[in-house]
Structure formats: structure tokens, C-alpha cells
């Protein structure tokens, strides 16, 4: 008996479920699945943006990547940026969260301020930092001058341009990982810290043996999210250095953009996008594997 009752409910139930899902599915299909398939299709062709060249070339675009020094260097630069930015952002976000995990109104205000920069557009952020880093009138130049150093144009220095971009990105994107860490810290029971206090634990021991292990999952999540995010770095680079000086900061997404919209080689650009997608899928997969519940 119960079986029949359940079944009679299932059909209309699943229809309702489908109806609720439909808007999302339509959106997902139109803006994610279709472009993805189209991109995969295009990556197998020589395909001009505005012309009418549409020639199938099989793995031609992918083989071209292997031989393209500009592609290779842009991939290296994206990786460099990611390697610099992700650990820095993670560490600084954790530090800020530790400092600001206090129940005072001052810290609540500071938390909001740190989170607020994330709401700015990339244009606004780069504008601010172009002003800060301006070699003649910027805050940084004045600071250096006050310390008795000659002004440096960070963005024009082949070795310092990338770190300058990292700092800008850090300032812009610190809020989100910080909030994740704050949420993680709030999960740690207060009694653990009180027990540690009674157990003669130093602040460093407390951090290492209690806080850090309790935040393991959050740290992992932040690392993966940031790798995915920072590997796609583009706006800051385009607006602050245009890939210079001497192509030292030309990153993958910028190269894809230029290949597609400056050189009109959409097919080749699509194949590079596929590679980017692969990198990010791997990162997501690693995160899903490592953060499976129950360990």
C-alpha cells in the first residue's frame, strides 16, 4: 500500500521539481553549456572573428600551442602570478582573520572595510593603485622619498611589476578569503582555547596545535578557490601594465583575449581557453576529492 501512495505522489512531484529547476537549467544551458560546446567546436577549426574563414584543422590549434613561444611565456606568467598571489593572499587573509576575530565593534568595522574593497570593480581598483604607484606623485613614491630612497616606477620594472600586480590583487580580493577564515574560526569552540590556557600552551603552540588543524579544510578551500581565481588574472594586468614591461606580465587570459579580439584568430584562442578550463577543472577536482565529508 505505501508503495502505491508514494508512486502516485512522485510523478507530479518530479514535474514540480523540474519546473522549479527549469529557469536555472535554461540559464545554465544558454550561457554555459552551449558556449562551452561551441568553444570546443571552434577550437578544432581555423576560425576568423569577422571574416568567413571556417576551416577544420583537427588538433592543429593544439599542436600550435606547443610551438608558440608567446603562449608558453604567457602560461608561465599566469603560473608565476598564481604562485605568488595564492600563498600571499591565503596567508594575509588568515592573519587578518586571526587579528579581527574579536567581539568588539572596532573589529566589526574593520572587517567590513576589508571586505568592502572586494565590491569595487577592477577598473576602480586599478585606478586607485595606478595613483598609489605613480612614480612622481603617488603615495608609494612619497613613502620611499620620506625614507630617503629614489622613487621607483614599480610597474615599469621588469622584476617588480608582477609583485606590484600581486599587491593590487591582494588588496582587492582579501575580503572573501578573510571571511571564509573568520567563519572557520568561529566554528572552533571557545573551550578549546580555555583548556589550552589552563594547559600552559603558548600562543604559538595554541595556533599550531589547535587553530591551524581546525582550519585545515578552510585553508584547502581558500587555496583551491584562489588558484582558480588567480590563474584567470586579466583585468588588473590589462589596465595596469598591458603585459609589459617587455612582456614580463603578459598572462594567459590576456594572450587569449589578444589572439581572439586583436588577431581575430578565434579558433586558436578557443583551444587555449580549453586548456585553461582543463587546469581549473583539475583544481576543482582536487578540492572535491580532498574535502569529501567524513575525514
Amino acid at each position: 500500500m505505501p508503495v502505491r501512495i508514494r508512486r502516485s505522489f512522485r510523478a507530479p512531484g518530479s514535474l514540480a521539481a523540474f519546473l522549479f529547476l527549469a529557469p536555472f537549467l535554461a540559464f545554465y544551458g544558454a550561457f554555459l553549456v552551449v558556449p562551452l560546446l561551441l568553444g570546443a567546436w571552434m577550437s578544432l577549426h581555423r576560425w576568423e572573428l569577422l571574416g568567413d574563414l571556417r576551416a577544420y584543422c583537427g588538433s592543429g590549434n593544439y599542436l600550435r600551442m606547443l610551438r608558440d613561444p608567446l603562449f608558453r611565456s604567457s602560461l608561465v606568467h599566469s603560473a608565476q602570478f598564481t604562485l605568488m598571489a595564492v600563498p600571499t593572499i591565503t596567508a594575509v587573509a588568515l592573519f587578518l582573520a586571526l587579528v579581527m576575530n574579536r567581539p568588539h565593534r572596532l573589529y566589526a568595522a574593520l572587517r567590513s572595510i576589508f571586505f568592502a574593497s572586494g565590491a569595487l570593480s577592477v577598473t576602480a581598483v586599478t585606478l586607485i593603485w595606478l595613483m598609489v604607484l605613480n612614480p612622481s606623485r603617488g603615495l608609494f613614491a612619497r613613502f620611499m622619498a620620506a625614507l630617503g630612497f629614489a622613487p621607483v616606477d614599480l610597474l615599469a620594472d621588469p622584476r617588480l611589476a608582477m609583485p606590484a600586480l600581486v599587491v593590487t590583487t591582494l588588496w582587492w580580493g582579501i575580503g572573501f578569503p578573510m571571511v571564509l577564515f573568520l567563519a572557520g574560526l568561529q566554528q572552533i569552540p571557545r573551550e578549546l582555547y580555555e583548556a589550552a590556557k589552563l594547559d600552559h600552551a603558548s600562543p604559538w603552540t595554541t595556533f599550531r596545535r589547535i587553530t591551524l588543524p581546525s582550519l585545515r579544510r578552510t585553508i584547502l578551500l581558500v587555496l583551491v578557490v584562489e588558484v582558480i581565481l588567480q590563474f584567470q588574472v586579466f583585468g588588473q594586468v590589462l589596465l595596469m601594465t598591458r603585459g609589459g614591461p617587455a612582456n614580463r606580465t603578459r598572462v594567459l587570459v590576456q594572450y587569449i583575449y589578444e589572439t581572439s579580439f586583436r588577431d581575430w584568430q578565434v579558433g586558436y584562442a578557443a583551444s587555449m581557453s580549453m586548456l585553461l578550463l582543463l587546469v581549473m577543472s583539475v583544481a576543482s577536482f582536487v578540492q572535491l576529492r580532498l574535502s569529501r565529508p567524513g575525514d
Binding site: P189, A195, K197, D199, R209
Partner: peptide, 19 residues
């Protein structure tokens, strides 16, 4: 300081270090 008082406490929810 708590540590210097020579007291040991058993907490209501035990507060064992989970890791």
C-alpha cells in the same frame, strides 16, 4: 594567570583537542 593557579578543569563538553 589560569595556568599558574594549579587548577585543572573538566569542561561540560569535555573540550578535548579534536586533532
Amino acid at each position: 594567570e589560569p595556568a599558574q593557579r594549579g587548577v585543572a578543569m573538566v569542561f561540560q563538553n569535555f573540550a578535548l583537542y579534536p586533532h
